[in-house]
Write a protein that binds this DNA or RNA. Structure first.
Lengths: 336, 336
DNA sequence: TTGATTTGAGAAAAGGTTTTCCCTTGGTTG
DNA sequence: CAACCAAGGGAAAACCTTTTCTCAAATCAA
């Protein structure tokens, strides 16, 4: 039922049901004591009138607004959107809505958004970004509301969620090894990124001496360049390539095709990020490590909910597993 | 100043400043009458204490929450994110925060989010999506708050914002013609999309009989297929290609390279959407039509603000101009 | 000096709900 | 039949701010 004019107040319901506001409130909230008939009558009237309690008034008393803020500097949204989707998914059933605040890398803008959210008495704040080794340009310590950090750097005593890049990288490497690939190279982003170092570390851990790592940009162009370098060398050429992200992998695959190298029969390629729209458009479609950012967002939602209900959570970094999404760029048992 | 424990209330400020709450309120809001000294004293105390008024209490009286909802079914967020950024940008200075609600294509989920927002007394709702010819699976008519539709289909009597696809397409075509291209083909998405029809219509309008249109999917694969078809025909091959989106353009350029056709010297290519991350990674970087979705979002923000302040707006469709972003895929005066 | 006007500031209501008492009423027990 | 108890429901305070009155004091005119 859609109310078009004035909003129905609890007093309207009470009046029509022939009870006091107090009783009406208790009837609808399942609290207090009254005959089942009274309760049902109030509920029926409320339904008929399309009554919906005013969340403002409610929040004023209960000190809970059923509102959380998501702060991000990931303008392009490639990482933030799945996180946001997960957060929202975890919270919508609890009646919690999410303010999305994109603060770029502007401290002043961050301050403005933060103040706006605090004024609106959000129950909690989730801080997220595009790198797990950079902080948002805004100080979230000592706030009157709980904070959860998801996919961004955080103070030591904070509740933090990140993807387990090392584990994801291990899975990718083991997959290549399991397919019988022996000469495997890792082409990835700048060493200044913790993600790149973690993934490279796991790669070396699995492959030992055999594993070779090439650092560059996170771009298609670097994928091309790396292949050019590898193919121009007077060395055995790799039969397996683990790329630090899907854009590099895309560049790698395109470069290989230009050289007449068959993927996956000659070389298996794995990407990272599982950026659907890119991974699926690559020819052949790209096997890639998914950071499960939506699941990470869901967990962030659950945690902020728990915190805002007053539960205590142990601070520290929680690593969430990645998973390998298999497409056709590696070949495999059947198509080898 | 960051308050860590209890929030400061107006009464705390009043007490400390030696005035009544009423006077304190008026002092801080610049209303009422009092000596300048009193006003300044109150303001100083409020600053010292780090007082920030409780938006809930405020909203309860003023019936404005400084909150709007953005409803979208664009899960991937390619269109919604720029719109959202624009909305937020237009509203943050007014102290308005934005609830982002992704409802997929699920009517029930839409209902849940809508109810949550209405309960929270949003001042207005912006409805946005990924197609201008599809509606969100939720009925927004007869709501107690104003609604603006941005980049999505809307009822006739609604305030609606869309990009001017025809104008954007015209600019692209005229650009190709201006470069001296004479045999121009339009490779675009399914005819079932209004966007595809609008762009194709403008294309034909500029090129007349010479203009040929190929409809397919919105994918890289279709770009490849279309080039295969065009190059296998026993006809004059095009020297200019206007693509319906950047993914098609990417496929087209890759397919041309595979055939040894030089872009831009042999063929000029224009894309649509100016999806930065794709357009910039294409070799050569792609000249593309930008729908200015951020500007569209800003306008949506301004309109919803005006409506929520009670201003009357004429219903109907407002078309916002696209603009051509020139990169290197067309060549031009210098690099021809 | 008296009456009228202006000035500065406070008391109280309002906004919509929840929650804590308190008061009936009808029934039970001894 | 008195005393007590439980059940059902209501009055009012509380949440925090804004806004409308109201009032006392100060200023001004006559």
């Amino acid at each position: 039922m859609v109310a078009v004019g004035e909003r129905i107040r609890l007093s309207d319901v009470a009046l029509r049901a022939g009870v006091s506001v107090a009783t009406a409130s208790k009837a609808l909230n399942g609290t207090g004591r009254m005959t089942p008939e009274t309760r049902q009558r109030v509920q029926r009237v409320a339904d008929e009138l399309g009554f919906r309690p005013n969340a403002m008034a409610r929040a004023l008393i209960s000190r809970r607004t059923f509102t959380v803020g998501l702060l991000t500097n990931d303008t392009y949204g490639r990482f933030t959107l799945p996180v946001m989707a997960g957060v929202s998914e975890a919270l919508v059933d609890e009646g919690v809505s999410v303010f999305l605040c994109s603060i770029e890398d502007d401290p002043a803008l961050g301050r403005v958004h933060l103040d706006a959210m605090l004024d609106k008495q959000v129950d909690g704040i989730i801080s997220t970004g595009k790198r797990i080794d950079k902080r948002l340009p805004v100080d979230l310590s000592g706030l009157p509301v709980p904070v959860v950090y998801a996919f961004t750097q955080a103070p030591d005593d904070a509740v933090t969620l990140v993807s387990d890049d090392a584990q994801g990288a291990r899975e990718a490497c083991q997959w290549l090894v399991g397919l019988g690939r022996t000469n495997i190279v890792h082409i990835t982003g700048p060493e200044t990124f913790v993600s790149a170092r973690d993934r490279a570390g796991a790669f070396r851990e699995v492959l030992g001496e055999r594993g070779r790592v090439l650092h560059g940009e996170w771009s298609e162009t670097w994928g091309h360049q790396a292949i050019a370098r590898l193919w121009d060398e007077k060395r055995a050429r790799p039969d397996g390539i683990f790329c630090g992200n899907d854009q590099i992998a895309r560049g790698v695959i395109d470069a290989l095709r230009e050289r007449g190298v068959q993927v996956p029969s000659d070389v298996s390629v794995v990407g990272f990020d599982n950026w659907e729209i890119l991974a699926a458009a690559t020819r052949p479609p790209l096997t890639s490590v998914d950071m499960n950012l939506k699941a990470l967002g869901r967990e962030a939602g659950r945690l902020i909910l728990a915190l805002s209900e007053g539960k205590q959570l142990e601070p520290g970094i929680r690593k969430l597993p990645c998973s390998l999404v298999v497409r056709q760029s590696c070949g495999g048992l059947t198509a080898d």
